[in-house]
Design a protein around this nucleic acid. Sequence first.
DNA 1: CCACTCATGTACCACTTGGTACATGAACCA
DNA 2: TGGTTCATGTACCAAGTGGTACATGAGTGG
Lengths: 199, 199
Amino acid sequence: MNQMVHLAMTASQPRERLLAAALEQAMHGGIADMSLRELARAIGTSHRMLLYHFGSREGLLTAVAFAVEEAQRAEVAQLVAVDARRLWQHFSDPLLWPAERLFFELYGQALVGRPGTEEFLSNAIEPWVSAIAPAISREAGLDERTARLEARLAVAVTRGLLLDLLATGDRQGVTEVFERYVRYAESGYRPDAHQPGQS
Amino acid sequence: MNQMVHLAMTASQPRERLLAAALEQAMHGGIADMSLRELARAIGTSHRMLLYHFGSREGLLTAVAFAVEEAQRAEVAQLVAVDARRLWQHFSDPLLWPAERLFFELYGQALVGRPGTEEFLSNAIEPWVSAIAPAISREAGLDERTARLEARLAVAVTRGLLLDLLATGDRQGVTEVFERYVRYAESGYRPDAHQPGQS
DNA sequence: CCACTCATGTACCACTTGGTACATGAACCA
DNA sequence: TGGTTCATGTACCAAGTGGTACATGAGTGG
């Protein structure tokens, strides 16, 4: 998700610059309930410019949601073959908390049908599963179907624990819980470590 | 969470009646970005009444968040000593999806600091852990500290999978993933089933 | 019957909202 | 130089916002 931060530094066209600034603002204190004027003031422009470059308020929100979603995908793309513990170290880094707050804010808005966020839901699960399933399959020697189940569980655990982390701030405690899950998964990969499932 | 539905039927005082109606509305299509007048129209009253009975818009939102949170706690209270699979059957029931969408909507809003939702975060984790840890401790013979770690993981898995479920609607697929987690946990309770952790 | 409280409706307030009209400036190309 | 395009600022609009003032019932206890 830290591509977003990077993105904020490489922007030439005004629209890109505004989008990057809006994204940065979105990560600090939310964006969904800001007015165009509030947002414009916060990022040093006028609401006129936001409308000029994004057409409408919804166009702006859509663009932001899309950018977040794109940053996500970029993040996923480079996750292949990394180890679970390092992954958690990465995602639980306080530097990423603002981006993750924004992610869950948009997720929540999308769940209640806010316009411009539909794409969010359809890309919330599958791309992540597809991104990490191959690594699991390769490293644990699981068939594709099982690896996808494992990947889906890993995504859920990570998100659930991130919700915990963002609510409590207790990085150490949550990390300990994550470590427990990883040991389960590792032992589960060796099918003799627990009773084999017939599902 | 289905206490909320129940709550909607037992309301005599006008404030309670309005709150129940607002809650019901909140579960169908969100509430955070509705105006008082929109909401009033949707639940068959006037924005004047909402202000009269809740003092302000924020008072209303706070009351709704509090009610959701209270319903949560009520739900938690009767979770003791229930089995994980039954728990998942319960939470994944499509009847509860609206309530869960509302839960995640409020969670997201609380994460970005929306006023009136602070209580949400402070009660998002600990009460749940405290509610189910004793059952885990008892049934698996774990010391309290370990049982709380397990409980925290269980809460995270459930929420992560609910996010998946609400985004995809794929109840069967997500249930299968949950089943995988349950088997991990069950084997983990027997400490010889995986290498013992020294954390 | 009167006084009082609770609930509700009507009308209004100042302010903000998303969006538009229009002028202006800067850059570039003829 | 003049025309054209992109970016931006100023001013405005109708509509909607949260909130308030005030009148009016409905019910209740004296």
